[in-house]
Amino acid sequence: MTELGAISFGLFIIVAAVGGAAVLTWFERRMLGIWQDRYGPNRLGPFGILQVAADMLKLLTKDDWVPPFADRAVFIFAPTAIVVAMLLGFAVVPFSPDLYVLDVNIGLLFFLGMTSLAVYSVLLGGLASNNKYALLGGLRSAAQMVSYEVFMGLSLMGVVMLTGSFSLRAIVEAQRDMWFCIPQALGLFTFLIAGIAESHRLPFDLPEAEHELTAGFHTEYGGMKFAMFMLGEYLGLILISCMIATLFFGGWLGPWLPPLLWFCIKVFALIMFFILLRAAIPRPRYDQLMSLGWKVMLPLTLLNLVVTGAVALWLEG
């Protein structure tokens, strides 16, 4: 792909991802409604899709307030970090054989780096708010991220071993014969859980836990800054779905249909699965979350790593 093409495609991806995240806010509420035997937002426009526009209008026209006791510069900087980091993460996603922004040899590590940078948004938001609920939310998020990041990276190393490369395109190409979700089922399981925890989606949304911490790290945020946090969360959801589709479900590979369509179908199905998780599973307690991460998930990941390495060596002869 030429440089100009890559740049323009990158811009397109930014617009599409932000638009997708916006539509996802409505879609998620609609799906939650259906699964909880309600209707969900269905008033504005066909199926209520204009709810997105109404919400945006509301958030844009709200008073953009910075609390006087907050650390002003950090308070304003925090929500942008998550959006920027998540959008950068999209740079390495291969949408189809020739639709991608970057194809670097460290694509996977780049993705991991960007998700780990997104943590700062939550942390600094909580710290700068100068509010006890926000601080507790930030603390929880810091501990959660550090614990789950450890095996998030490790759970992907099985895939890297089987492929022999960090390049995401090479990983997809290596799944021509068999998707990695079969030999790496354990890796998929652990990465899925780490991914939810990393984007603090609902079963693991302890940083914001509305029942205990009012709204956690974004207690003091309103208007467009709050919208940035939400945008970042939904971008994270899409990004994690893209990565799971790429790493474990063969990315663009699939019969009959065009590659881009296959990719979109897989990502959509994964997003549906994440929303289903939100609809069905209650939030664990904080110590349960920590012990799940360190006592169950980390050993499982290490086991997966050892077994995969042994099998890979054995197959090589």
Binding site: S116, V119, Y120, L123, L124, G126, L127, L135, G138, L139, A142, A143, M145, V146
Partner: peptide, 8 residues
């Protein structure tokens, strides 16, 4: 992140 954690 751990540094920020400690500061918090």
């Amino acid at each position: 992140v751990l540094f920020v954690f400690v500061i918090m």
